[in-house]
Structure formats: structure tokens, C-alpha cells
Computed example of a mutant assay.
Amino acid sequence: MKAVELYLANYFNGIELAPALFYETNKAIRFEISESIAHDEPDFLKQAFYRSITLFEAVFGDEDDIILVTDVHTNNDFLRAKPLHVYSKYVKRKDLLYKLRFSTVPNLYGDEEELVTHRFSLSCQKRDVRYKQLLKAICYEDFADPTTILKHNPESGYDIFFINQSKNIIYHLYDDRGCDIIASDKESIRFLYEQYTDWILDYDKQEVDEDFSLNNYS
């Protein structure tokens, strides 16, 4: 069993690292990252940048051990020979790139038989990653911007996960609209529920409130 899958088996009951993590466990919070706003308004992504970075810094401490996972869903085998610029661009310590791991994962999107998920993973710490710029790039993915991660491979899709091995928390900013944060121990993210309750997506707010009720410790 590969390192990421082994970790998930040990701490998250072997859940699939794929969207949408929120619906895979009751130890999860789904945050609204950007409220509806016209894309032609100045600074329309300002709120998305602020919320995604704020939540990230709340989850990851300076000394926490992180696995930065990038899944690329594609039928392009070229990616194995030349990994995405996610790591070369956003990882500060170039010596860490020699530790970059690659594997393939069975298609995570059952309706696309030809797709294969190419998984890249790197063990690092917060200070090793230009995480603010990376989170902004994820928010920009649906818009014409030079930071678009798959601008040279637009036919493919991707997901980026940050795994906090020290606290057993997974952070998934899926785009400018939302972010899923799950934990192996619900109490480790209760502070997010309490401090940022106004950011919880309205559609899922009742479910989150029920899961984090003091009467529900499962």
C-alpha cells in the first residue's frame, strides 16, 4: 500500500482522497470561501483569498508535518515524465523535489473510463511551501489568469490536498467557492466550527451543526 493510502487507512478509515471529502465523514466542515459576486467587479476574489489563507493558517502550524498531494485526472501520460509546475513553482526548497513521489490511482471519476489519476505527493512543512500563492492559484483556476495551474494541459482536471500528519487534518480548497476540512478527531477542528461558523456553507450548515453538537461525539 502506498504512503498516502496507508495514512488514510490508519487515520481516516481508508476514505478515498477525492472530492467531496465533506460527505465522507461526520468529522468535517464545508466552508464557503467566496460569496456570490460579479466576476467583473474589482477584487472579486479578495474574499476567497482571505478566507482560504486564514483557514489554512489556522489548521497548519509552523512545525507540523505536511503531505502536499496533487491529483491530476487525465489521459496524458506525459505528466509522469514532467510533473506539474505545482512543486517546482510553489515549493521553496528545491532539494525536497527529489523526494517527490508519483503513483497512479484508479479513476476517481467513474463516468470517464479513459481517465487516470496521476498522484504526486511530497512531505514538507508550511515554511517550505509558497502556500498563499498556491491557494490563490487554485482560486483563479476557473478564470483567465497567468497562475492557472493547468494552463498547459486544459483538458485535464486536478485536486490539491494538504494533509496535516501532526494533527490528522485534511484541507481541500476545491476552487474559489469552497473548502472542505476533515479530521480524524472531531475535537481537533471544533475551534474552526466555533470561530468561523459564519463562513460555513449555508446548504450544509444544519448538518455541520448537528455533527458538532455537544450531544454528538461520534
Score class of each variant (00 low, 15 high):
75 N>P: 07
144 A>V: 10
106 P>V: 04
191 F>W: 10
189 I>V: 12
177 R>K: 09
66 I>H: 05
60 F>N: 01
196 Y>W: 06
91 V>F: 00
157 G>R: 08
58 A>M: 08
126 K>F: 13
149 I>H: 04
47 Q>E: 11
185 D>Q: 13
204 D>N: 14
81 A>Y: 13
129 V>M: 07
142 D>L: 09
210 E>Y: 11
127 R>W: 13
97 L>D: 02
89 K>A: 00
35 E>N: 08
59 V>Y: 03
80 R>P: 04
52 S>C: 02
105 V>G: 04
167 K>Y: 03
15 I>A: 12
145 D>E: 09
21 L>T: 07
181 I>Y: 05
96 L>S: 01
38 A>Y: 07
74 T>W: 14
137 A>K: 02
16 E>V: 15
129 V>H: 02
135 L>R: 04
19 P>A: 15
72 V>G: 07
170 I>S: 09
206 Q>I: 15
23 Y>W: 14
201 L>Q: 09
99 K>P: 00
34 S>M: 09
112 E>C: 09
27 K>F: 05
107 N>D: 01
163 I>Y: 00
172 H>E: 03
73 H>F: 14
192 L>N: 04
111 D>K: 07
152 H>R: 12
87 Y>R: 00
58 A>F: 04
215 N>T: 05
7 Y>F: 15
71 D>S: 15
108 L>P: 05
188 S>H: 15
124 C>G: 07
148 T>A: 14
162 F>D: 00
77 D>P: 13
50 Y>S: 10
146 P>T: 07
97 L>G: 01
39 H>R: 11
27 K>M: 04
65 D>Y: 12
141 E>K: 06
143 F>I: 02
109 Y>G: 03
85 H>P: 01
193 Y>W: 08
106 P>Y: 15
128 D>K: 11
89 K>T: 01
88 S>R: 01
184 S>W: 13
136 K>H: 09
46 K>F: 14
5 E>T: 13
141 E>A: 06
187 E>F: 15
84 L>A: 02
214 L>D: 08
47 Q>P: 01
154 P>H: 05
91 V>Q: 00
163 I>R: 01
8 L>R: 11
132 K>F: 06
47 Q>W: 00
111 D>H: 14
150 L>V: 03
55 L>V: 05
12 F>S: 08
117 T>W: 10
105 V>F: 03
57 E>V: 04
149 I>A: 01
6 L>G: 13
136 K>Y: 13
107 N>E: 05
93 R>C: 07
72 V>E: 06
159 D>V: 03
133 Q>H: 10
56 F>A: 09
152 H>Q: 09
5 E>R: 15
87 Y>H: 05
208 V>E: 08
74 T>P: 12
211 D>G: 06
141 E>S: 12
91 V>I: 06
165 Q>T: 11
70 T>F: 11
114 E>W: 15
197 T>G: 12
110 G>N: 08
55 L>M: 10
78 F>P: 01
202 D>I: 12
140 Y>G: 06
1 M>A: 09
172 H>V: 03
84 L>G: 00
106 P>R: 13
59 V>P: 01
92 K>F: 06
30 R>T: 03
59 V>Q: 02
78 F>D: 02
205 K>R: 14
46 K>T: 06
187 E>W: 15
14 G>I: 11
123 S>N: 12
99 K>Q: 11
116 V>N: 10
